[in-house]
Write a protein that binds this DNA or RNA. Structure first.
Length: 1006
RNA sequence: GGCCGAGUGGCGAAACAGGCAGACGCACAGGACUUAAAAUCCUGUGUCCCGAUAGGGACGUGCGGGUUCGAACCCCGCCUCGGCUACCA
């Protein structure tokens, strides 16, 4: 088996079997003998593809891996086999297939390794890529390896930097209405910065003022903001890289420190990123996750008056009525954002985020100390502390008051960290009666609760809070309005009075795009320095022609230990330069995040060697978007959102012709470790050892024990999850609090009882039965190399597809691998004579004889089912169909070549090595990779008679066999004539007869 | 807490649009081949009941209701597990 696999892998390599030349669409090779046109499977591509997309092309893409030192994981081949089957199948349908592979190779692990050992990350990366490539090749995937690249290749990151320059050169015109290359008219466009209108007052201040103004509007911009600085990793992290207040990688603590950072204005594309999801063939759950992540909400901005005295409030109000809603709230205004402007009459206090700029102004002298203390504490708190709901809310009164613009009422202004500076305006109006969080806060601090909405408009409400929509009460002239009507009306009333306006907000934040590490793409940006070497804040870009900006060689990879980037330790020759006009320049020393390289790699695969453009527009038009994209759900939000963002910018700037990069997305389910049984023991260590030593006798000795404090097995049902002092998850006995020790049990010590598994010798003890995520710590990781070594690549491929549906989470089972390996053995013996002395040759049962009708029926049934299942990615059932075929044909002594050959073709996408070998033995000189996929003929599926179930009142009572062409009357008569049915019908009347052609007949009787 | 998904034999699963529940595989049991074992092949296998056998019956897709001639599938309520998210006003 191993010999066969190596042979064919070498063959495919030597013959470049899977190389595809994209600019030669009409390529015709002798082996590519197609007699029929490809099936037009993607007629629904109009939404994302242009009208002239070539139906005979298919771009099938895997999410490219990060080549970690650990090598391939069994999760990788799951998706890769699925796309390989689709690719091989599509080629046989006469479709030109682009199926590439490459490496997402920038990132922290290689750099961490460099810090520890001094090995250059490029060395580590190259070594890991070598391992991955060897492993992938050993699985026989039909990649076009001539297109391989890594994101770390200078010739690749040259174009990553080029795209960054596009982002830098673009501003978002939210009001621009335009028609793109896809023929769709939309509002909002990324436009060249040179087209940004410059206000007169800015222009009047000179060239540098204009430059600064432009810099503020670019899609790639610098901004000083609190960032998530992780001292352990020595880098700043994106919000998305922080889980529960700790770093996603390594779980290290994260601090908030202010720093000047690069951000990408992804929020400008929030609307389009949400709405343009609709036409994609993506799982609904992923679309929903992206929409939730973008988190668009509609509401209103409202200014509260924070000046002194009723008179000045009146002046302020009338001035506002005159001038309209201002761009900035001004010194006497406090701007809030709310989604419930209909509850304005229920406001009993206001809350500012601790970092809000107006806090100083509003704080009174006697509250100053308390406010300052609180602000300091809030600044220190990690995100985890801030969001710890269990601890309740915190906040302090500033001493200041704000006046409600709708009723002139003065309400106290607080600061509290449950209001986030980064969302909305960083200030809220609090309506405890109708907002859960405000209610919790108000209850805690004894603030009034005023009801202004009731379910039915009846003022008497005894509930503390009502958070749904309803009918307005206690709201002046608005009483009786339903929530939605009220919202619209008060928003326009506020607008008319210059006090508020409709507003949209997003949970999505701009994307923090700089990292302080070495192993990433350098920015093609220079900072201008003044005569004393201090940055002026003005920037210049590297010209496109000087890209790539290469990483400098460095000997020392130790982090700086401060938020200062690694590359600030680079040699001066790299770091400094002088412009032609004499200006001193310093290089941007941050690097791009790992996401950058993976944001556009799918484009480069179509034109990987192009040294004039990131992709040739003609090639882009023909091959994009990706037709099928398969990968893990862990990238559901970040990678896919970032890619879509970049793609849309490139689209707006005319560099790509489609608005979305990935037409169809499928998420493979995670493969878990083998199912494990876990029992729990209480008692000291020696007792645990005695119980679990495996000796049945010692366990039995505990059987009669009624001593509830001694060492003993304990049911999982009596345990509760806890967290111990060190923060580790433990399980304790619910009643006594004793800590239980987990013991992994072998399968034959347990049995099923009811709906749970119990110990065989102590049926009262329920044990856990679960498959866990594979992890080094648990020791349940399956290495694909071992599986390939033992069972062969075809077995691994087949097993991973046979386990269950591609999208499902499924536990590994080595016995299942044996099962599919046995199946492949049966296929082999169906065709090959193993007994032969003269080496391998065809079995004498495989003959050039005519096929019987029965054999043809089995074949065509199999062709039909396998084809349909591949189209719907139902690989598990496709394999079971082929197993049925083999079971049938092994029972036959004559196996016509005309039936066996199509079967080998059906099998080939799944088990290509075996199939190629069999194909050769059947007398074909070259690869089957471009043979025509078999077609089924329904004519062969017709049977002369069939069995139809007969029901009485919906319950199955018998079956009758009728001729295939029998009409309804004949079938009903036959059903009634059946002895069993007849006896049951006796003495009853048939009220109604349900007849489903080909399915069943049902008599409703009384 | 919120959102999404899933619960079917001892196990992984199948049932395509509401119409024969459990295809296919694993495991197990019995048998054949073998000195023996492995490999391979054959037979059986949801649970319970009646029956010597042939055969027949009842129950059965997490739980409780509902719609329907008919529900694993649709609706309502609940339970359990998994994923995502976590004060976004």
């Amino acid at each position: 088996m191993k010999r066969i696999e190596a042979k064919w892998q070498a063959y495919w390599d030597t013959h470049q079997t899977f190389r595809v030349d994209l600019d030669d669409a009409t390529a015709s090779d002798d082996s590519r003998n197609h007699s029929e046109p490809a099936s037009p499977q993607h007629a629904n591509g109009a939404a994302t593809g242009g009208p002239s997309r070539d139906a005979r092309k298919k771009y099938v893409l895997d999410m490219f891996p990060y080549p970690s030192g650990a090598g391939l994981h069994v999760g990788h081949p799951e998706g890769y086999t699925a796309t390989d089957i689709v690719s091989r199948y599509s080629r046989m349908r006469g479709v030109q297939v682009l199926h590439p592979m490459g490496w997402d190779a920038f990132g922290l692990p290689a750099e961490d390794y460099a810090i520890k050992t001094g090995t250059h990350p490029a060395v580590t990366t190259a070594k890991n890529i070598g391992t991955f490539k060897r492993q992938l090749k050993s699985l026989g995937f039909s990649y076009d390896w001539s297109r391989e690249f890594a994101t770390t290749d200078p010739e690749y990151y040259r174009w990553t930097q080029w795209i960054f320059l596009q982002l830098f050169d673009t501003w978002y015109d939210a009001t621009c209405v335009w028609t793109g290359q896809d023929g769709v008219t939309r509002t909002g466009k990324g436009r060249p910065i040179s087209e940004l209108p410059i206000p007169h007052d800015v222009a009047a201040n000179g060239v540098n003022a204009v430059r600064r103004y432009q810099d503020q509007h670019r899609l790639a911009y610098q901004h000083e903001a609190p960032v998530n600085w992780c001292p352990m990793l020595g880098t700043v992290l994106a919000n998305e890289e922080i889980i529960d207040g700790k770093s996603d990688r390594g779980g290290h603590p994260v601090e908030r420190v202010p720093l000047r950072q690069w951000l990408l204005r992804i929020t400008a594309y929030g609307d389009r990123l949400a709405s343009e999801l609709d036409d994609l063939q993506w799982p609904d759950s992923i679309k929903l996750m992206q929409k939730n992540w973008i988190g668009r909400s509609e509401g209103a901005e409202v200014d509260f008056f924070v000046g002194e005295g009723q008179d000045s409030f009146k002046q302020w109000s009338s001035a506002r009525k005159e001038s309209g809603f201002s761009r900035e709230p001004g010194a006497e205004g406090l701007r809030i954002y709310t989604t419930r402007p209909d509850t304005l009459f229920g406001v009993t206090y206001m809350v500012l985020a601790p970092e809000h700029a107006a806090v100083d102004r509003l704080t009174t002298a006697e509250r100053r100390a308390a406010v300052d203390t609180y602000r300091q504490q809030a600044a220190m708190k990690s995100d985890l502390d801030r969001t710890d709901l269990a601890k309740g809310k915190s906040g302090v009164f500033t001493g200041g008051y704000a006046t409600n613009p709708v009723n002139g009422e003065k309400v106290p202004v607080w600061i509290a960290d449950y209001v986030l500076i980064s969302y909305g305006t960083g200030a809220i109006m609090a309506v405890p009666a109708h907002d859960e969080r405000d209610l919790e806060f108000a209850t805690q601090f004894g603030i009034d609760v005023r009801h202004v909405v009731a379910p039915d408009g009846q003022p008497q409400s005894d509930a503390p809070g009502f958070f749904e929509h309803g009918v307005a009460i206690n709201s002046g002239g608005y009483n009786g309005l339903s929530t939605l009507v009220f919202k619209t009306k008060i928003t326009s009333d506020l607008e008319a009075n210059g006090l508020g306006r409709k507003a949209v907000n997003y949970r999505l934040r701009d994307w923090l795009f700089s990292r302080q590490r070495y192993w990433g793409e350098p920015f093609p940006i220079w900072h201008e320095l003044d005569s004393s070497g201090v940055p002026t804040g003005l920037m210049r870009t590297d010209p496109e022609t000087s890209l790539p900006v290469l990483l400098p060689e460095m000997a020392d990879f130790k982090p700086t230990g401060t938020p200062e980037p690694m590359l600030s330790k680079a040699p001066d020759s790299w770091l400094y330069s002088t412009a032609s006009d004499g200006t001193r320049l310093k290089r941007e020393a941050n690097t791009m995040p790992q996401w950058a390289g993976s944001c556009w790699y799918y484009l480069r695969f179509a034109d990987p060697k192009n040294n004039r453009q990131f992709i040739d527009p003609a090639i882009e038009k023909r091959w994009l978007p990706v037709d099928l994209y398969v990968g893990g759900a862990e990238h559901a939000v970040l990678h896919l959102l970032y890619s879509r963002f970049w793609h849309k910018v490139l689209f707006d700037r005319g560099h790509v012709s489609t608005v979305e990069p990935f037409r169809r997305l499928v998420n493979q389910g995670m493969i878990l470790g083998e199912v494990e049984f876990t029992g729990y023991v209480v008692g000291d260590a020696s007792a645990v050892a005695a119980l679990t030593g495996g000796a049945g006798s010692s366990a039995n000795s505990m059987n009669g024990s009624t001593d509830s404090t001694g060492p003993r097995w304990i049911s999982v049902r009596e345990l509760t999850d806890r967290v111990d002092a060190e923060g580790t998850a433990i399980r304790v006995v619910t009643k006594t609090g004793e800590v239980a020790t987990a013991v992994t049990l072998v399968g034959d010590r347990v049995e099923k009882k009811g709906d749970a598994f119990v110990l065989k010798d102590q049926p009262g003890v329920v044990v856990d039965s679960r498959a866990h995520k594979m992890s080094k710590a648990r020791g349940n990781v399956i290495n694909p190399d071992v599986v390939v070594d033992q069972f062969g690549a075809d077995s691994l491929r087949l097993y991973e597809m046979f386990m269950g549906p591609l999208e499902a989470v499924k536990p590994w089972g080595m016995k299942g691998v044996e099962g599919v390996a046995r199946f492949l053995g049966r296929v082999w013996r169906m065709i090959v004579d193993e007994q032969s002395e003269s080496g391998i040759r065809l079995s004498h049962t495989v003959q050039d004889c005519p096929a019987t009708a029965e054999q043809l029926r089995v074949l065509h049934r199999t062709i039909k089912a396998v084809t349909r299942d591949i189209e719907s990615l139902g690989f598990n059932t496709a394999i079971s169909r082929m197993m049925e075929f083999v079971n049938d044909f092994l029972a036959m002594d004559a196996r016509p070549k005309s039936v066996i050959e199509p079967f080998v073709l059906l099998l080939s996408p799944f088990a290509p090595h075996l199939a190629e070998e069999l194909w050769q033995l059947l007398g074909h000189p070259s690869t089957l990779a471009y043979e025509t996929w078999p077609n089924h003929d329904d004519a062969w599926l017709i049977e002369s008679e069939f069995e139809i179930p007969v029901q009485l009142n919906g319950k199955l009572r018998g079956k009758v066999t009728v001729p295939a062409d029998a009409d309804r009357e004949t079938i009903e008569r036959a059903a009634k004539a059946d002895p069993v049915i007849a006896s049951q019908l006796e003495g009853k009347t048939i009220v109604k007869t349900i007849f489903v052609p080909g399915k069943m007949v049902n008599f409703v009787v009384k």
